[in-house]
Design a protein around this nucleic acid. Structure first.
Lengths: 217, 217
DNA sequence: CGCGATATTGACAACGCTCAACTCACGTGG
DNA sequence: CCACGTGAGTTGAGCGTTGTCAATATCGCG
């Protein structure tokens, strides 16, 4: 989202905020907190998690380097609707809302960029609502994996690997299922050579097969 | 979203677009069409429906008077991600993207307003993803009804009525279920005096009971 | 008046969740 | 260096919720 800015503007923008390291597991902001800061990830991986009244939680999305988070809530003056947690050691910049508003006024690209990213996420969420509505669990897991591949896939000689550690539990919370079903499903896919999974690591070996699984009959 | 504009600006904005009537059932734009127009509803009710590959469809949301639709896709230069269909005879204004951009430049309130509404919808969709992930059907139907009450509730001596005709099929497509289950559920609620439903009409008699149903044990 | 759209209801099957027991990998501390 | 504990993953059995199939009832509109 900062791609269209020249180096000078970029460093000015960075200088206006605060850069800090985040150890794995660190809670960056919590659901219900007043949205007073805008964040952008420089390095690592952050998950956005929504706690539900019944005690379960659902992973809304993973944030990668270059992406913004917490920004929409902050700009709207609303409380954060979810937690943000670093899943690996990471580095982020954050700004106060006031600063972000000034930056947006001074560099319209920043405003444009975050509007575009909010729009893209809106579409993604609408798609997900549609998917969760009618599809079977296996298809939802397949789609979830496909999204992860797109957002965090790293090519290896063996296939495409999700480039951060993810548990079956988390995958289940994204797909709207349980870690048991995810475990069984992945085991079956591993047997068929579609994926290769180990402790907190997943490799997709046959992306086309995964696409087939996502599209029903 | 036009609330903060004075009368003069408002009529200029209206004059820049085209006003037209929409008979019930009319398709305003279709999923996959290039997003070349921005729309706002003046009167009536429009549903946004996403067709899924398996042939089923899911109702993303209902649009009421004063709300914009199709705008995010148009501004991003993307195809519309869903159909828009008038559910009752309605009246809308629409603008070309180019015109909308000029209006946004001239009246920043317009830009602000649509950003805010996009943000609100993003939150709503995130909530829905969370809900669909773990909740049981009855809870999802309850939440769906609550949303409809908020968006299109009209007070009557008997309770709060959804002010446009809605089928059980549509309710099912919003809640991610089947019309059969919705029918059974509504029948049970009717018996308990929580709702009163008739052909294409739903009245909520005990909103608090509905809220209880939405929150699991 | 008749047909299509909408809704109701029952029987049945199955998908996937819940509960439960167990294995395995890894890191930590004695 | 090994024992232990904890977090992650696997696997099995049983059952409930909910979708599928099917038949019928009702309402409205043309």
């Amino acid at each position: 989202m900062f791609r269209s800015l020249d180096a000078q503007a970029l460093s000015a923008i960075l200088a206006a905020g605060t850069v800090r390291g985040l150890p794995a597991g660190r809670v960056i902001f919590a659901q219900g907190d007043d949205g007073l800061t805008c964040h952008s990830l420089l390095e690592g991986r952050v998950k956005i998690v929504q706690a539900r009244p019944d005690g379960n939680q659902s992973v809304i999305r993973f944030i990668g380097p270059g992406e913004m988070y917490g920004t929409v809530a902050a700009l709207m003056g609303k409380p954060f609707p979810a937690d943000a947690v670093a899943v690996v050691d990471s580095v982020e910049v954050y700004w106060t809302v006031a600063t972000m508003r000034q930056l947006m006024a001074r560099y319209p690209e920043v405003a444009m960029g975050s509007a575009a990213s909010a729009g893209a996420r809106l579409f993604e969420m609408q798609d997900r609502v549609g998917e969760m509505a009618g599809e079977k669990v296996e298809q939802r897991i397949a789609r979830t994996l496909m999204r992860l591949v797109q957002q965090a896939g790293r090519k290896t000689p063996d296939g495409i690997e999700i480039d951060f550690p993810i548990t079956r539990q988390e995958l289940a919370e994204m797909a709207g299922s349980t870690l048991h079903t995810v475990s069984r499903t992945l085991a079956a896919w591993d047997d068929r050579g579609i994926t290769g999974s180990a402790r907190r690591r997943i490799i997709v070996r046959k992306l086309d097969a995964l696409v087939d699984l996502a599209e029903p009959a």
